[in-house]
Write a protein that binds this DNA or RNA. Structure first.
Lengths: 196, 196
DNA sequence: AATAGTGAGTAAGGTTTACTTACCAAACAA
DNA sequence: TTGTTTGGTAAGTAAACCTTACTCACTATT
């Protein structure tokens, strides 16, 4: 049995088209007819492959995130120390998000306001990412790499929040940031604290 | 000269109506006719007072944020130590944002994806808030309340990011959080660090 | 006291946009 | 040959956002 193509050319072109358009505009002001004409297909085809306009966005995010998660997994695979792991996660995340602004825009600005996003596969993947961080912290506390009295839930939020917020300004205003500088400073602050 | 009312009843009712509707639904799925009927006015009146549907959202955020900024200013007015100031800002922010979910939803989920938000008065106010935090940190570094080698820009992002991320889950899934627990742990982590 | 002007609001479209439904054509299996 | 699945088109629909033309009450001025 020849495995029937689950990803026909039209479908690929549609996703690529939205990705291209998102580089210049926000999701809300991109129309379906615009997506279709950019992809070189008709509007109706979008609805053959995607439930609605938002579903298309979730699928695009899913694709991007799959690659991202692989990078994350690869980056921590060699390390054993929890602090080291967190360091590379922070660095890899910042790098990926600033390199692919469209991906970051979808993740940080667009999907969150849509309730059905939280039922999507894309959101399931993001939970895996958050859990990766949380697990490293828990284990770090257990092994003593991290202070014993650390609340792992709060620390997870601080780290994820810091990464996001560091990217936000640069996504919105399309500036370029010094990833190494920022990730080093995030690590220094969180690891060593700021009180003299 | 009698000061002519700059805020007529219809305008107030429209803003109140959106606020009420936002408690149950997201902005995107609230229609203008729904807002009008909730307010007891006609659809056309919305466009007498607001440029478009989004402008109404920005004005609502502006109102909420004005009150918020007052609380923040009041909370730091007594303190002199930078660490103490940051502590109350974290606590007050978490408290305000979790108490008024609609406000937090607009601020953290809705407006950010709209480019013209960054030209609104609401956004100007948010910049003042961020600047408040940044200034406290700068002064703290100068006076020695905070470690000399601290990068104030990064620390600002960590703190704002931590506050936001701590609220996010609770806004989205409408859980209630233990503000004191979280704000204490955010402070402990950032101030003292996590390395043993 | 008549007139002109303004602020608050309505009513009824117009336009755009997301989505649907019916149809077409080629490849391929029976 | 004929039926079925797959990839794609074309035209239409309902509704959402927004506009335009109008009304009515009140105030200021001459």
């Amino acid at each position: 049995m020849k495995t029937r193509s689950t990803n026909p050319p039209g479908r690929i072109k549609i996703m690529k088209a939205l990705s291209t358009l998102m580089e210049k505009k926000d999701f809300d002001s991109i129309t379906t007819s615009e997506i279709a004409s950019e992809a070189g297909v008709t509007e109706g085809l979008i609805y053959k492959y995607f439930k609605d306009k938002k579903d298309l966005l979730y699928k695009l995010l899913e694709d991007h995130f799959q690659l991202f998660q692989k990078k994350i997994d690869a980056s921590i695979s060699g390390k054993t120390n929890a602090i080291e792991k967190l360091e590379v996660i922070i660095n890899t995340s910042l790098e990926s998000w600033t390199k692919s602004k469209v991906f970051a825009k979808i993740l940080l600005l667009e999907v969150r306001s849509y309730p059905d996003y939280y039922k999507s596969r894309a959101y399931e993947l993001i939970k895996v990412y958050a859990k990766t961080v949380a697990t490293i912290i828990k284990q770090g506390v257990a092994t003593g790499d991290i202070k014993k009295d650390t609340d792992h839930q709060t620390l997870t939020k601080i780290i994820l929040g810091a990464i996001e917020h560091a990217c936000l300004g640069d996504i919105i205003f399309e500036r370029d940031i010094d990833i190494d500088h920022i990730s080093k400073n995030i690590c220094k602050t969180i690891f060593k604290g700021i009180q003299p």
